[in-house]
Simulated scan of single mutants.
Amino acid sequence: MKIEDKIWSALEDVLDPEVGVNIVDLGLVYEIKVDDAGRAHVEMTLTIPQCPLADEIVKNVKEATAAVSGVKEVDVALVWEPKWSPARMNDRAREEIRARRSLV
């Protein structure tokens, strides 16, 4: 398994605390690159630019990425283009959100 694939898998454990769904299923992660020196670059967005939990989410992304074997350094870039929309979510995220709403 490629190191990028391992990072994608690790990021499935990082939740958006407000939504309660992982950032991969939400479509917040746009790109992952790792160079030969083990420097990982994660390009991602948030559901809204003013997200009050942005620092926490980025910290969790860095920690999850750094825990992957072979990663020596982590850089997380928050980008706003393309803008996130619910259309970026996969079916699993939609089902989790529907299930959470039905519990309320």
Rank of each mutant, 00 (worst) to 15 (best):
V42A: 10
V24W: 01
E95C: 04
V58Y: 10
G38A: 12
V61P: 03
E12C: 14
A87H: 11
A77I: 08
P86H: 11
E43H: 09
K83N: 12
V29T: 09
L103I: 11
A77F: 06
V58P: 13
K59W: 00
K6H: 06
D35S: 13
A93C: 09
H41V: 14
R92L: 10
V79M: 05
E4S: 07
T45V: 13
A64V: 04
D36P: 02
K6F: 00
A66Q: 15
W80L: 11
A93S: 10
S69F: 07
H41D: 02
D35V: 14
E43M: 14
V42R: 06
V68A: 02
E18L: 04
I7N: 07
G27H: 06
L78M: 11
M89G: 12
A77K: 15
K62M: 08
R98I: 10
H41P: 00
P86D: 10
L15A: 03
I48Y: 01
A54I: 10
R100M: 14
Q50F: 06
A87F: 07
K62W: 00
G20Y: 09
L103E: 15
D36R: 08
S69L: 07
M44T: 12
W8Q: 05
L15W: 02
K83L: 12
V76A: 00
G70N: 00
D16Q: 09
K6G: 07
L103F: 04
G38F: 09
V29C: 03
V61K: 03
I23D: 03
N22S: 08
V29G: 05
V34E: 03
H41N: 05
A40M: 07
V14S: 06
E4F: 02
E63H: 05
M44W: 09
Q50S: 15
E81M: 13
N22M: 07
I23L: 01
N60M: 05
W84K: 11
D91N: 08
L26E: 05
R98G: 08
M89D: 06
I3C: 02
V58L: 15
W8G: 02
D13K: 15
P52Y: 04
E18Y: 04
I7G: 07
I32Y: 05
D16F: 01
I32G: 03
A40D: 14
